[in-house]
């Protein structure tokens, strides 16, 4: 709790320090219409999405790691992000859906399908290699189907339209899209956060949890459905962003002395910070053209992922 407060204070302090208050005040005073456009229409959706999507990735990553009893599970590794992208592409280009909330629903359905497929392929308490292999297979299949769907799409510009979105982007989203992504994600996130104590006890094994009067398979079902809703809604608006959902929970568990359930809320905070920082980097990149968000998170995340993998291997053989 203390830690959360300190983190929150730090973040607020940083925001305060980095905000150019004086020019901002001047702009609001001289041209309120432009200021409104800049702040509310352009900046606000982007900031909200970075914080909300990052928190969603951290929280669902932590919850999925806890129920799969596997520190490598995450929305991207389990294939649920790719499933959500496929769902949203099919909904948008073939069912002709345009409402952001309907697309979010398609994303959630795709993510849920991917997670159910993973449970079928890898089993409930999957060892790391079966989880990674099954997740990889689902990601590849969903990616290929997404490309196929875009190639066959009625609109000839589908590929170009979808490219930025598929690589993960928070730019130029409307407040309606923000609501479609973050309201379901917040509801699902609160649903998941209720289980942090139960997920800690799951560390003792499903039998111990059942002996305490909980229903482990129901817990698993609820976590899978809530994660699918949260991830699906966010992916349908922002595309899939890798690694944040893997790394934020791993970092959070260092703060919770290894407890997988207690790490849920800190993982959400860390995810929000990571994705905001990554989005900041896409804009600061000195290449003239913004680098896609997914590229930044992959560049930062891959070394950490490899480090975790090596450490696990080292631990297994030592």
């Amino acid at each position: 709790m203390k830690l959360l407060l300190v983190t929150a204070a730090l973040v607020i302090g940083l925001i305060g320090m980095m905000t150019p208050w004086a020019p901002l005040r001047e702009l609001i005073d001289t041209d309120p219409a432009v200021a409104h456009l800049l702040l509310v229409e352009l900046r606000l959706p982007r900031v909200l999405l970075a914080l909300g999507y990052g928190a969603t990735l951290g929280l669902t990553g932590a919850a999925l790691q806890a129920i799969f009893a596997n520190p490598l599970a995450s929305p991207d590794i389990t294939g649920s992000s790719s499933g959500a992208a496929l769902g949203a592409v099919l909904g948008g280009y073939f069912l002709g859906l345009t409402g952001p909330l309907l697309l979010a629903g398609c994303g959630a359905a795709g993510a849920l399908l991917a997670l159910l497929l993973l449970l079928g392929l890898a089993g409930r308490r999957a060892d790391s290699s079966s989880l990674l292999l099954a997740g990889l297979a689902i990601s590849l299949a969903a990616g290929a189907l997404t490309s196929l769907a875009l190639a066959l799409a009625p609109s000839p510009f589908a590929f170009y339209d979808a490219f930025d979105w598929l690589m993960g982007s928070l730019e130029d989203r409307s407040l309606r899209q923000v609501a479609a992504a973050l309201i379901p994600a917040a509801a699902a996130g609160l649903w998941l956060a209720r289980y942090s104590g139960t997920l800690d006890r799951l560390a003792l094994g499903e039998d111990v949890l059942a002996s305490l009067g909980h229903d482990p398979s129901r817990l698993r079902t609820e976590v899978v459905i809530a994660s699918a809703i949260a991830v699906g809604a966010c992916v349908s608006v922002c595309g899939s962003v890798g690694f944040v959902g893997l790394i934020a929970p791993i970092a959070a568990r260092r703060l919770t002395r290894g407890h997988p359930g207690r790490a849920l809320v800190p993982a959400a905070l860390i995810g929000a910070i990571l994705l905001s920082a990554a989005d900041l980097l896409t804009r600061l990149a000195p290449l003239g053209r913004a680098i896609p968000l997914g590229v930044i998170t992959a560049a930062l995340g891959t070394p950490i992922f490899l480090w975790v993998l090596l450490r696990m291997r080292w631990r297994l053989t030592s």
Binding site: S211, L212, G213, R257, G258, H259
Partner: peptide
């Protein structure tokens, strides 16, 4: 569940533990 935890202690035969939880915290769980 809270009442069950107070009345019943169950120890499964499985001994694996994948999370890096300290012994002291494990007992406190």
């Amino acid at each position: 569940p809270a009442r069950r935890a107070a009345l019943l202690g169950f120890l499964p035969a499985a001994r694996e533990m994948i999370w890096p939880i300290a012994v002291r915290d494990l007992v406190a769980l």
